[in-house]
Amino acid sequence: MTAIRTSNLTKRYEGVTVVDNVSLSVKENTVYGLLGPNGAGKSTLLNILLGLVQPSGGEATVHGFDTRTESLSVRERVGALPDRFDVFPRLTGKRHLEYVIDVRGDESEPSSHLERVGLGDAADDVAENYSRGMQQRLALAMALVGEPEVLIFDEPFSGLDPDGARMLRKIISEEADRGATILVSSHLLDHVERVSTHVGVLSEGRLIDEGTPDELRSRLDSPHRYELRVSSNAGAVHDRLRSIANISRIDVSGNELTIAATEPIEAELVFKTVEDDDIRIDSFTPIQPPMEELFNAYVGDNS
């Protein structure tokens, strides 16, 4: 079942196309990472899904409800952490939660949500005085009220410290286990890679590719990566590896070599080529190509 679908979705502001014929689909109970550099159109796309922005063309649906004509039904099913929000002035963290609980007709306790995001001790403080990271946690807590079927997080890692980012990844994982569909946009590749089951790459308003992280990696020129650790003389190892066909790049760092290859390489061949009386292989491990490399391959200098 598709939870989120856009079809030829377009948004133009005064002649400038910000979202350009984007057609994507997010299946139920997946975590979809929307990657793209700043200005790629990610926030506009998510704002259209949330009914904050009207599309210039195309259509978008969430659980079959049109975001333009049935936006209330959409928001009943969606918990959102929008980008560039501000908290309500003069209200405490607890009052923020009470407001959302009231609007959603939920019966949960504000404290349970605040504790989940690590704001239990600051519940009675005025949210205006929270740090940016705390405000981000508060908005996250608000998004989780009522266990929505779909969660839309726009740049959720912005402003979070490493603890906060870890907490957010844990919550995303828990919500996915609960059965929620989660759409996360970010320009922070590392975070998205860790939480997403599917990834879409947006550049200059266009969706240039989508799939599972492994599918996207397989589309790299050299999708196979290995980490080779040797006892000594990495320079000589580098030269010997050059003789193996399909190896396209070798990076050396101390006694560690990272190998990129267009086809899989047999470990036996590597051992045979490298080892002699002076050089011994400590380890040879297949690794994943970093998502950042994939991202750069797609969006190039735009990132």
Binding site: P82, F85, V103
Partner: peptide, 16 residues
């Protein structure tokens, strides 16, 4: 609230 962005927290809730 449109200027400071707090309206986003209102309008992403299930209310018209």
């Amino acid at each position: 609230s449109r200027e400071d962005g707090s309206i986003r927290l209102h309008l992403t809730q299930p209310q018209t």
